[in-house]
Design a protein around this nucleic acid. Sequence first.
DNA 1: CTCCAGGTCAGGT
DNA 2: ACCTGACATGGA
Length: 300
Amino acid sequence: MPEVLRSANHTAWSPWTAVDVSPAFSPAALAETIDGGQMFRFNKDAEGAWTGVWGEYVARVRMGENGVIEVSFPKGRAAETMPALRRLIGLDRPYNTYYASLPRNIDPVIDRAMHSCEGLRIVNLPLGEALLCFLCSPMKRIPQIKIVLENLAQAFGTEIMPGVYTLPTWEALADVDENSLRRCKLGYRAKSIAGTARRIAEDPEFLAEVESLSYAEARKKLEELSGVGGKIADCVLLYSGVGNLQPFPVDTWIIKAMSDLYGLKGWEPEQTSLFGRTHFGNLAGLAQQFLFVYARKGGK
DNA sequence: CTCCAGGTCAGGT
DNA sequence: ACCTGACATGGA
């Protein structure tokens, strides 16, 4: 974590402001929403507050009294950052309705998973940023993904506050060779990022087109990119909001959860993803996130 | 030392 | 259509 963020800098940040939302975040839900594998750019400090960067925005978030979250912004930036943060973590979405629409009455597994993380939301990152983040993700633990992305931000992003860097744009990455990417500890994923940067440079409307397509078509289009298979395409679409809440990303944790909790022994990822979308309908991505959290906590 | 991690792809049946 | 190994890096 950058030094400037480690110690409270009262001149740089607005006072903490309570944001009352419904449903309320449980502490677990807040942690899982902003720092549980949907996003990788929020870091927790010694006081328990997270500081995060997305797009050109920076914000701090913490759990306040009585389960009400509190937020703080760079001084003078509250007016534009508050609505951006609300969009990022889904505060203006009807999650009470979403929760009531999941099949918890007929499915005790999803009911238990939802109880374990009351208030969980799905984030809405900029599409290009979600793509970059999940291209760094295969065969890495979440802490390692966060380190690699911080390396990329410091090497090729923009410093928008002392010690705070945005992720590089795809335009910026198009000018970076694969070996320079490897120095950010990307390993073999450097090739995917270089290839994707090249494709987007040749076809500047690529991401705008993805945003205009249906979920199924958008998924297919993203899979044209190097390093993007079904799982990463689903993560990119889910955590950017482009696929609404339909995508059901299937990783090793979801394979384990669906095998252990739903009896889908030996099912392939594509089969499992279709099962999720069929069983949970157009909120499959939200159900997936509850199951992901539940599986990682060992079913507690 | 060995094993595995929010997978994908190329190269073989 | 399926199956298999390779792919970088770091932590347990």
